[in-house]
Design a protein around this nucleic acid. Structure first.
Lengths: 353, 353
DNA sequence: CTCGCCAATTGAACCGATTCAACATCCATG
DNA sequence: CATGGATGTTGAATCGGTTCAATTGGCGAG
């Protein structure tokens, strides 16, 4: 590498060496058509001789004010983008949209919460996609300060002033519940995502209804809509709040199967929960869907590959990513938009025996 | 969002409004300790009132010359980073190292080959990690022009002038072959990665030995080392060049099982090939490892999850990523370095029946 | 009361390009 | 031969900060 061999060559040096003004030299690189061929070649030749690396981006950038890249931010450590199934599917959609628009993609995150603020402040991007699986509030706040266009995904709050892409959680949850009811299930338990901070375990319908998080609230509302119409009282069914991880789901299932009537079906508010639950049940020798049916939510790729494959409510994950990018790049619709979801029936649900 | 409400506020405006010089205002943000508290607070207050978004990065950048981010580049479309198992494992390592060093991560790629050049030229990064699974030559060339530190991974050429992290392909291949020989296999076929451009199918030992790609060449060399020492002639064994995709692997297996003696074991030069082959065999009702044993190469996470789990040569994938980042960030060892690999015995190999 | 010193602040230069009004050429036209 | 219009080139202003030498003001020591 021609590294450190000499102080880096600047446009000015090239211009001087080629005997043209800096303005002309600049044109040679950024608008070659306006420069006479003879001059252009001479400049390019001297540039090569001097080992000029091309117009520095920072200089150009300073003028242009555009980076031509979008940032994707989350509270999780950066690995998350490559390991979490939902994040991956989403990123694939985002990546595709970026490719299509010739935009770059920067990952913004931090193991350490303090650094996150700094990283968001200092990311060289034209806008942000916010992945709000967790800690969405803070993420939005931090990003707001930056005063760049942004779009929140999987946001857990209802605040209409936040540009966000959401999915039809109520409709999706209703579809999931309807599917079970139509199969003939009446004894249905709910494995929910969070209603409040740092808590898990059995909750009452009233507690669930008072949830801070709109995602959990909307989904339970959807379930109830259908189940109560089918004559199943919200107070009669077991509802468990989980932390979307193995430990809490296992603890809830322990409780569920130790106390009270055994359910014939489980409504899980995420595929992750559903998959963990399925694993737990099978380890206990409880057949899925033979003894217990399970419906997930999200539609991550893993759900199609499990044994049995998971019946779930599929979000248009890649589409969410694509739209978010477009919204930022075109400074397009910066408002709230809702996308539909779809019931995907697979092998984890059947009529009760 | 306070968008377009007024032309964006600059440091100069804040300074003027607060009645201090621009220099002091700058210090308030970038070296708060040198400014008297009273002044600092006044400036910060006016900044907030004016809706100042903090020092613009471009201005700062221009001075600092450092972006504090590294780019990862590949020839594949950007989705690749989130979908390919090897890339994902690698990116996880890279991401971790970036987190640890407070560096940002930019993905550089392009569906369209022409755009790739532009994207590499215009990525705002301090250095590149090159993912050379394919088209590594061009990628290296493009990156060189940029005159930034870089590190090539999975590079298929021997050029010692290219800073690269490689693994011990010969040793790994030898270990794979040794494992099979020790189990008692004598009839062994090789499913190879590419030896030449746009070709697949059965090849002679001489053709394989003449390979342009050092990766394929090193691995076949490792196989031969052990097998010939065990008295198995290189000309007696079936070698197939694949394109690391389903179509070519299937075609090769068709050929292998239709003509000549049936092997009791297969050496695959990638986990991808091995997994495809295993699937093909099982579809044909050929038991793995009952009738045919398979050894892969790479050690991607998927290999541990297959049925049966794949015996393979594991590369220290995450470690490769980590080291590459460190090399770039510290302007550390910019040379060539070789990392060891490890035989991981799982369920896809057994003694021949 | 003067001197020297320290801390806080200022003002101007600078980072590396782009952009644009003004200027210089050259050629065709009336 | 003056005039007008292309075409190409120049020089200076500009982008939004950071940095540093110089300046100011306050305070203790002599």
């Amino acid at each position: 590498m021609a590294k450190g061999s000499e102080a880096s060559v600047k446009l000015k040096d090239v211009a001087k060496a080629a005997g043209v003004s800096q303005g002309t030299a600049s044109n040679v690189f950024s608008r070659p058509d306006v420069v006479r061929e003879e001059v252009r070649e001479r400049v390019l030749k001297t540039a090569k001789e001097l080992g000029y690396a091309g117009p520095s981006l920072t200089g150009r950038l300073l003028r242009a004010g555009k980076v031509n890249a979008i940032g994707v931010a989350t509270v999780e450590p950066m690995k998350y983008f490559f390991e979490d199934p939902f994040a991956r599917a989403l990123m694939a959609g985002i990546a595709e949209a970026c490719d299509a628009n010739g935009a770059g993609l920067s990952l913004v995150s931090a193991g350490n919460p303090e650094k996150l603020a700094w990283n968001i402040q200092s990311a060289l991007v034209d806008g942000f996609v916010l992945l709000c699986v967790d800690g969405g509030e803070r993420l939005v706040e931090l990003t707001r300060e930056r005063q760049l266009p942004f779009m929140a995904l999987s946001l857990g709050t209802d605040d209409a002033s936040i540009p966000a892409l959401v999915v039809d959680n109520i409709g999706g949850a209703a579809a999931a519940a309807r599917h079970l009811v139509e199969l003939g299930h009446r004894q249905i338990a709910v494995l929910s995502t969070e209603y409040s901070e740092r808590h898990y375990g059995r909750v009452t319908a009233a507690q669930a209804d008072a949830s801070l998080y709109s995602t959990s609230h909307d989904r339970i509302t959807g379930y109830w809509q259908v189940l109560e119409a089918a004559g199943i009282s919200r107070d009669a069914m077991a509802i468990f709040e989980t932390r979307n991880n193995e430990e809490s789901v296992a603890a809830c299932l322990e409780d569920l199967f130790a106390n009270g009537p055994r359910p014939t079906a489980i409504l899980a508010m995420s595929d992750r929960i559903a998959l963990i639950a399925m694993d737990w049940l099978q380890r206990r020798g409880i057949a899925v869907p033979g003894e217990v049916s399970i419906v997930g939510f999200d539609g991550v790729p893993e759900a199609a590959a499990s044994v049995p494959p998971l019946t779930t409510i599929a979000q248009p994950i890649a589409e969410l990513g694509r739209r978010a990018v477009l919204a930022i790049l075109n400074e397009g619709p910066q408002g709230r938009e809702m996308l539909p979801v779809e019931l995907v029936v697979r092998g984890s649900t059947a009529a009760p025996s």
